[in-house]
Amino acid sequence: MKVRTTVVAAGTLVLCLAAAGCGPDGGGEGAGEKATASRAPASGSGTGSGATATPGAGSPPVPTPTSHGRTLTEAELEKVALATDEVPGYAIAPLEGTGERGTEEPEDEACRPITAIINGSPEPAPAAIVFRTATDTAEEGEDDRTVVTEILTSHPGGGAGELLRAVRDAVRDCAGGFRTTSEDGPTTYTGVRALPTAGAGQESFAYQVTGSLAGAEVPLVFHLVRTGSTVVTFYAADFLTARTPEVPAALLTAQAAKLP
């Protein structure tokens, strides 16, 4: 089988990293079996509000604040989440196993916003949360299928904007890497850097966190898209190579278009 750039749902979201022990420093055997190939590149750079993110350049300019909008309920998040046939070539389904979240705690509090997302629990705590996976139907039966994970969260007041601001600051402050501890032991992330975004929604930000698996680099990529009080976090990882995985731009733009 040809090994290609991979995008993974990592078992049960990033819980595979933090709870099941198959991510950085966890050494679990399931990681390679769940690796999936990404053929569609993310597009362009910049955010929906005009701010840009340059890889390695730290935090981009903070966009001008916009209306918070109405805080969606869980039922409303379910309705605006992507569904099968809305993005050609991708099957959308609820993510299994989200009742148990990761337990990683950062040694440096400045890195907590990043760790919270790795745990599958973005901060500030949302009023409602919904999980989805998007799977490339053209790769049916392949071991390295494209599987992208989404977390949709709604935040009262200015919580959605606060989430993105906190993550931007953490990416800047934790660029040299950080360590965490959990019930499964310590984890080391060797570096953090901003990435170009697809410019979806009212505001967007992307970054890479690099961990390790059996001594090999494991790049984890996160794209955050905000519209009003809703934030969608897309997750991708590469357990087979050290190359930065890419979240298909079609998923980002299609999901952003459904947000009220």
Rank of each mutant, 00 (worst) to 15 (best):
H68K: 13
L15T: 13
Q255G: 09
D238S: 01
A198V: 06
G11H: 07
A236L: 05
E105Y: 04
G69P: 12
A93G: 09
T12C: 14
I92M: 08
V8F: 00
S229L: 10
G120C: 11
P122K: 11
T149K: 00
A166R: 10
A35K: 03
A127Q: 15
G44A: 09
A75L: 11
A200E: 02
P60L: 05
C16L: 01
G48Q: 12
R70G: 00
V147M: 03
S49Y: 14
A127C: 08
S67W: 14
A175M: 07
A256K: 11
L77R: 01
G157T: 05
F178Q: 09
E142H: 02
P122R: 09
V62D: 13
R226F: 00
G48I: 10
L82F: 01
E246L: 03
R112S: 15
T135Y: 00
A160N: 00
V14E: 12
A57I: 00
A91H: 03
A110F: 00
A170M: 07
A214M: 13
D25W: 02
R165I: 07
P124Q: 14
T241H: 07
K258N: 09
E78R: 09
E139Q: 15
A31C: 11
R179A: 12
E139R: 11
G99P: 04
G191T: 07
T36I: 08
T241K: 09
Q202V: 03
E76I: 04
R145F: 01
A42M: 06
R70D: 11
A42Y: 00
T52A: 10
S49F: 10
